[in-house]
Design a protein around this nucleic acid. Structure first.
Ligand SMILES: [Zn+2]
Ligand SMILES: [Zn+2]
Ligand SMILES: [Zn+2]
Ligand SMILES: [Zn+2]
Lengths: 146, 146
DNA sequence: CACTATTTGCAACTAAGTTGCAAATAGTAC
DNA sequence: GTACTATTTGCAACTTAGTTGCAAATAGTG
């Protein structure tokens, strides 16, 4: 992981600093979106300052190593761009019950057919619903009530 | 418009108050998403307090008369739900150049096929790109440069 | 007209994200 | 290794969308 982080930084000609490596390692480890706060938590007590985290994420966004998603809670979520297509991110699913967001990386989706004159740079799909976990929990509760 | 606003409020059993009517009239008049601030602007000097606007929008969201979209700027955008399907809003297109968002109400889209166990409540598609207006403006500039 | 539950406006607050600046450090040249 | 400089970092102060508590105003009802 550490090596991959170094590699990624190198590939976009950014200096190899500990804060940047720690942030990249954290993003490499996870399979979902993370907020600035979650990144800091996961790095632990020696996490970089929040300003540094935001600045680093902005740089990685500019280099297109990282993507940003706006879900339903007014805070930005970030992830590595390596599971996204050229003009389309993988879809995201947010459970209205447990509020968890899942990256649907295995799923193929179509680009929307746009009217003449519009050109696409990135398409993002966001789905709200109930996740498998909460679905079965609800069923269990129903059975218990009977 | 005024009549339609009254009708809408009645249909969800909310009291007919001037702030609520003004907000609904504004949403009825427009063909795009609006922020709290834009709603206040459009109503003018007698616009309701921002607290009232947010509270009203939340009530209308609960009654499913209004939908909320999170685009790329950390502020919520609102619109009437009347151009949305049962489980899917119309797609939104944001121009990276002029920052304007367009409601693509005429376009048909598919629901993503979810893995077993996930159930959909609402699918939203958001596209970033260049709008027809900015596209032709760029072409014109190129020609001028030659 | 009177009554009450609901709604509104205001001021103070919360929290995500940004900015300016001085101190620290990565990469480079010797 | 040491010195140098451009870049990066941390901190504190700030900005701003959205929320909360509460007292005053008002829609609907009889
Ligand atoms: Zn869930
Ligand atoms: Zn994802
Ligand atoms: Zn445009
Ligand atoms: Zn729309």
């Amino acid at each position: 992981m550490n090596h991959r982080a170094t590699e990624l930084l190198g590939s976009v000609h950014l200096r190899q600093t500990e804060p940047r490596l720690a942030i990249l390692r954290t993003l490499l480890k996870t399979d979902t979106l993370l907020t600035q706060e979650q990144i800091a938590e996961q790095i632990g007590p020696d996490a970089p300052n929040k300003t540094t985290i935001y600045r680093t994420l902005t740089q990685l966004l500019d280099k297109n190593l990282v993507h940003q998603a706006y879900l339903d809670d007014r805070t930005s979520h970030f992830e590595l761009a390596h599971h996204c297509g050229e003009r389309q991110c993988h879809p995201h699913f947010t459970c209205v019950h447990c509020k968890q967001t899942h990256c649907l990386t295995g799923i193929s989706t179509q680009l929307v057919e746009l009217p003449k004159g519009f050109s696409v740079q990135r398409q993002q799909i966001h789905i709200d619903g109930v996740c498998p976990n909460c679905q079965t929990m609800n069923k269990t509760k129903e059975i218990e009530r009977v």
